[in-house]
């Protein structure tokens, strides 16, 4: 099976995430879209890992292709940490403004 299919799938998911970020104003959904984008990248990494596990270099070193999956693992770790902090920020915002509309939070303007 061609790697290109995975690339296409991954890019599609990623773009859906981008469009979601661009179109939605709910902070939580935007956050979720970011997670979706991360997952799209994870999928791609795993696909490449599989692809490389069949290459010549992988024959010489059995752990060669695992690096990519370790990367995914770490991305998940970071994502988990990020989500915990991000959600607490959203909670705090909601507490202060009773709103999670990002356009309402245009404090960057001034």
């Amino acid at each position: 099976m061609d790697i290109k299919y995975y690339i296409a799938l991954s890019l599609t998911l990623f773009t859906i995430g981008v469009i979601g970020v661009l179109t939605r104003r709910n902070a939580i959904i935007i956050f979720m879209c970011v997670e979706l984008m991360l997952n799209a990248v994870n999928l791609l990494l795993v696909a490449f890992s599989n692809m490389h596990s069949l290459s010549v270099a992988a024959k010489a070193s059995p752990t060669f292709a695992s690096d990519a999956q370790i990367f995914v693992f770490f991305i998940m770790i970071v994502a988990a940490a990020e989500v915990s902090v991000g959600l607490s920020i959203i909670v705090m915002l909601y507490r202060n403004t009773h709103n999670i509309d990002v356009n309402f939070l245009n404090r960057l303007k001034n």
Partner: peptide, 14 residues
Amino acid sequence: LQSGQVGAYVLLMV
């Protein structure tokens, strides 16, 4: 361009 709206910034970034 500097509307202060995060969405607009992201759009520009993309």
